[in-house]
C-alpha cells in the first residue's frame, strides 16, 4: 500500500534520512522505532506530504507524494507530535473546521463529530477552548482530528508521549481498535508500546534502517541469546567468579556489587541454544553461599533496540 524507496532527506548538510526502503501493507500497524533524532518524524512528515524528500520517493497506492499530495492527504490522517492545535478555538469549532477542510457534507459532519467524540472520549470538553485542556484531552482531540476524514491510513507521531499511564492505556486501546480496519503507522521510542500495539517494527537509527520485521520474529531472532541473572550473598566476587566460570556453557561473567548491601549481582552470558540453569544451580549449591535471586533473562525488544542503536552503523 505504501512504498518507501531510497528515501533521503537533508536539512542543509545534516542527513536526516539516508536511502531508506520499506513497505507498509494494508491493514498493518507499523511501529517506527528509534532514538530521538533518528529520523522518524522526518519520515512521517514526508509521508504526509508536509516535507519534500531530497531524493527518492514514497508512493501511496501508486501515487507519488510530491505530485499527488492532495489525493494522498485526502486518504491520510496525521497527528503530529504533541498535537499542535489552536488554543483559542473550541474543541467543537476545531473539529468542525477540520471536517470542512476534509470536505465532509453537513450531515456526515455531525455524525462523524458525534462518533469521534464518543470514541475518543472528548464529549465533555466539546465546548471548551483547546488551550484549557489537559495534555491527555489535547492528544485525544488531535486523534479525533486525524480520524475526521475516515482515513485509510493513520499516521501518529509519538501518540502517547507525555501522557499518564492510564491515558497511555486508553490511547493504545483506541489505536488497537482503529488498527483492525486501517493502516496505522506510529512512531515511538517506548518499546513496550511498540510491543503492545504494533504488528511490525522498523527500527531507524541515524537515518538508516537497522531492523525491519515482525515483532515476534525480532524477539525470537534475539531470544536465543540469553543471560542468567544471580544475586548471591556471603561470598566474594573473585571466588564466586572462579567457581561459576567452570560451569560448562558460561561464556562470560559480569559482576556488580549492590551499594549498601553485602550481596553481589552476577550476570552470566550463556552459550546460545543451551539451558544451563541446572548446572549453575548445582555449582551454587555445592558452595556455602546464600542464593537470593536466580532468573533467566531472554533478550527483550529493549535489548535488541539498545544493541542496534548503541554504536554508529557503518
Amino acid at each position: 500500500m505504501i512504498e518507501v524507496k531510497d528515501l533521503t532527506k537533508y536539512y542543509g548538510n545534516l542527513c536526516a534520512l539516508d536511502r531508506i526502503n520499506f513497505q507498509i501493507h494494508k491493514g498493518e500497524v507499523l511501529g517506527l522505532l528509534g532514538p530521538n533524532g533518528a529520523g522518524k518524524t522526518t519520515c512521517m512528515r514526508i509521508l504526509t506530504c508536509y516535507l519534500n524528500p531530497t531524493s527518492g520517493n514514497i508512493t501511496v497506492k501508486g501515487m507519488n507524494v510530491t505530485d499527488r499530495s492532495r489525493s494522498i492527504k485526502q486518504i491520510m490522517g496525521y497527528l503530529p507530535e504533541n498535537a499542535p492545535l489552536y488554543p483559542e478555538m473550541l474543541v467543537f469549532d476545531y473539529l468542525d473546521y477540520v471536517a470542512d477542510a476534509r470536505g465532509l457534507s453537513r450531515e456526515t459532519k455531525l455524525k462523524r463529530v458525534e462518533y469521534l467524540s464518543r470514541i475518543c472520549a472528548i464529549r465533555e470538553v466539546m465546548h471548551q477552548p483547546i488551550g484549557e485542556l489537559s495534555k491527555g484531552y489535547k492528544q485525544r482531540v488531535g486523534l479525533a482530528q486525524a480520524m475526521m476524514g475516515d482515513p485509510e491510513i493513520l499516521v501518529l507521531d509519538e501518540p502517547t508521549s507525555g501522557l499518564d499511564p492510564n491515558q497511555i492505556v486508553e490511547i493504545r486501546e483506541i489505536i488497537r481498535e482503529i488498527g483492525r480496519e486501517k493502516t496505522v503507522i506510529l512512531s515511538t521510542h517506548i518499546l513496550s508500546e511498540a510491543e503492545a500495539t504494533c504488528d511490525r517494527a522498523v527500527i531507524i537509527h541515524q537515518g538508516r534502517i537497522v531492523a525491519d520485521g515482525n515483532i515476534t520474529e525480532l524477539k525470537e531472532s534475539a531470544g536465543r541469546d540469553t543471560r542468567i541473572i544471580l544475586t548471591l550473598a556471603n561470598t566474594e566476587p573473585g571466588k564466586a567468579r572462579s567457581v561459576l566460570e567452570k560451569v560448562p556453557g558460561v561464556m562470560g561473567i559480569e559482576t556488580e556489587p549492590c551499594p549498601g548491601d553485602p550481596a553481589i549481582h552476577f550476570s552470566l552470558a550463556v552459550q546460545p541454544g543451551k539451558d544451563i540453569r541446572v548446572p549453575v544451580y548445582r555449582a551454587i549449591k555445592s558452595q556455602d553461599w546464600d542464593l537470593l535471586e536466580f532468573h533467566r533473562q531472554s533478550k527483550s525488544l529493549e535489548h535488541i533496540f539498545r544493541e542496534l542503536t548503541k554504536e554508529n552503523v557503518q
Binding site: 508536509y50 492527504k73 491520510m76 496525521y78 504533541n82 489552536y86 477542510a101 476524514g149
Partner: peptide, 14 residues
C-alpha cells in the same frame, strides 16, 4: 511557532 502549520498543511489544502 505552535507547530499547527504542520497540521494545517497535512489537511487536503494547497
Amino acid at each position: 511557532n505552535r507547530g499547527s502549520y504542520e497540521m494545517l498543511m497535512t489537511l487536503p489544502v494547497t
